[in-house]
Design a protein around this nucleic acid. Structure first.
Lengths: 338, 338
DNA sequence: TCAAGGCTTGCACACGAGTGCAACACCCAT
DNA sequence: ATGGGTGTTGCACTCGTGTGCAAGCCTTGA
């Protein structure tokens, strides 16, 4: 329909030429709140439409000294809760007119590279929900004055903005659910890989047992917080055969693997053994498991994270500290004693 | 340790000043293959280290006219295969020195916005693995000369680069698996929402039935390709009670919901009914399901996608057309007839 | 009619970096 | 000693955009 520029993108100068105005007028047309005559603006808009012009955000960012890019450092996307969170955060960022810049990491290794990238691109802020130890990221972000929010990484305490589930309540609710199911002797199943969040959940769980008249008779472990890890923990459980009537699995994936392993060996759930998980991933609600678990509200985490980030961006000296997101118990069949 | 710049990032000029050289020398130090004396380079590197300098990629991109940003347009990240793919693609891109720019979309709606963003940022290329109809994206990318690869979106044929699973083989393998299990009368379970990939799978499945002596006695549907959709399809199946001994579910999530629904109503799998799924998501391998399914190799998809993208970027006129990724059957318990 | 004031507009500089060109230093061979 | 060649360096321009400043126009009031 219109003359196509053969090479390179169309710039504000091209639009200016076609509209018969100066480049400044074009720039002002696309700048919120700038002073342009309505008639000029319309002519510029028309020319821009004809040429398919779009403001070059790289150039704009360079001039304005802020990119509206947000580094999204994330590991273990195969954990469905993580994937859900990334999806949710991505949408929320876009809705707030920011752009998510994805930085996938493995445990620890690529972290340095991810930080490097963020600084190379002058991100306006960063969200870290990675298993990588956040100290390095936090230090580097602080040094370069990049607003940072950690999600579910409580170990940094209040020194950086931190949004985290209420791990204390998570452990407490799990203990109460087992007590409610009539358990007396319980087992803790968890991953071997270090995780501060998991540690806190487990500590809280253990701390509330005496008050409820429960006794912790064993702790079994699987390597990671996934299905295979749950199977391992299940095998460890059967190997030790502790006299127990309830198990707290500090993570849902682990719980599902644990359940499957025990059921295949003939253990009846919930009749012989009640199980409580943590996270409420979609799979926990499936008929085959119907797992009682502590729900981690992803949408609330997202909103709080965005809120904290925007606060930090608006005021470079703001220290939102720790935001705790409430969790609640989802009662299902795995603790339903007749 | 070193003087900290109070405001703003440290630039090449700062480094130049500290090292006692011109800004050009700094630029050349960080440019591959530029001519710098070893001693000068070392002095520059030292100064850069002291100041924590990093090349500003926005400025570099502006000058070099390519950003090395890749738009990653993706919907339905809560589908675990999608999440896995995004993770895998993200890592592959970073490994190839590109940067993934995440553009989450819902079905169709945000697509225009996603395209807009990509063009605003002058992305070097785009990967689309979204349920949104890709025509709009393809047209706009072509107009602005942005290399584009569609993943599992066969409907554009060979006109744009396209990496897709072998849907024909997927359907065929599923049919063969049911035949192998001794089935004679089979049912097709699928989603109601339109999807070209799913259509192709189902067509291929149906096409191979006669050759194998199988008869398609019914088609049942659920709304979406998820667990709930499978439950719906299961309910539809029981409502019609077709005389059937095998079911092909065109998607694993659907298959799992279908299995759970039928089992809860007392149907025995695989004895009364054999089930075959498609995708081989992690959950399909769990003990509770142990689903025979057609594996979609994510890693191969990723590599082929990256390959096609790099080809398009290297040669703007290249038309890699359609790349088909082989699939294979994973035999498990859901088709194991005694 | 003239002056004052408000709205638009264009010029020119800035953001941070890459690079062609010419000047320069240095080394070696003649 | 001199010429030529090689390897470094700095100047100045460029990428596409935002914006302070001053000049210009138009409107309004006296």
């Amino acid at each position: 329909m219109s003359a196509e520029k053969p090479r390179g993108a169309v710039t504000a100068s091209d639009v200016a030429q076609l509209a018969g105005v100066s480049r400044s007028a074009v720039s002002r047309t696309f700048t919120e709140g700038a002073s342009v005559a309505p008639e000029t603006r319309e002519r510029v808009m028309q020319a821009a439409r004809d040429l398919g012009y779009r403001v070059n955000f790289l150039a704009r960012s360079l001039k304005e000294q802020r990119t509206r890019l947000i580094g999204l450092v994330v590991s273990d996307m195969d954990h469905s809760l993580r994937a859900h969170l990334v999806d949710s955060l991505g949408r929320a960022l876009v809705a707030a007119d920011y752009r998510p810049f994805l930085l996938p990491t493995s445990r620890g290794e690529d972290t340095r590279r991810a930080i490097d990238m963020m600084l190379h691109y002058n991100v306006s802020g960063a969200i870290v929900t990675s298993d990588a130890s956040p100290q390095a990221i936090a230090a580097e972000c602080a040094r370069h004055d990049v607003p940072l929010v950690l999600v579910n990484k409580a170990e940094m305490g209040g020194r950086v903005a931190n949004v985290t589930q209420d791990t204390e309540a998570a452990g407490r609710l799990a203990a109460e659910a087992l007590a409610e199911a009539g358990c007396r002797r319980v087992v803790l199943a968890r991953q071997r890989l270090p995780s501060y969040t998991i540690d806190l959940r487990c500590d809280a769980f253990a701390a509330h047992l005496p008050r409820l008249g429960l006794k912790l008779v064993a702790t079994v472990e699987g390597e990671a917080q996934n299905y295979a890890g749950g199977q391992e923990a299940g095998a460890a459980f059967l190997a030790r055969r502790p006299e127990a009537d309830g198990v707290y699995c500090a993570n849902d994936f682990l719980a599902l693997g644990f359940m499957d392993h025990l059921r295949r060996r003939g253990v009846s759930i919930p009749d012989e053994l009640a199980i409580v998980g943590c996270d409420d991933i979609a799979e926990a609600g499936w008929d085959a498991y119907d797992l009682t678990t502590v729900r981690q509200p992803v949408e609330a985490l997202t909103q709080a994270t965005l809120q904290a980030l925007l606060t930090c961006i608006a005021d470079r000296n703001a220290r939102p500290g720790l935001t705790t997101i409430g969790v609640d118990l989802v009662r299902r069949n795995s603790t339903a004693r007749s």
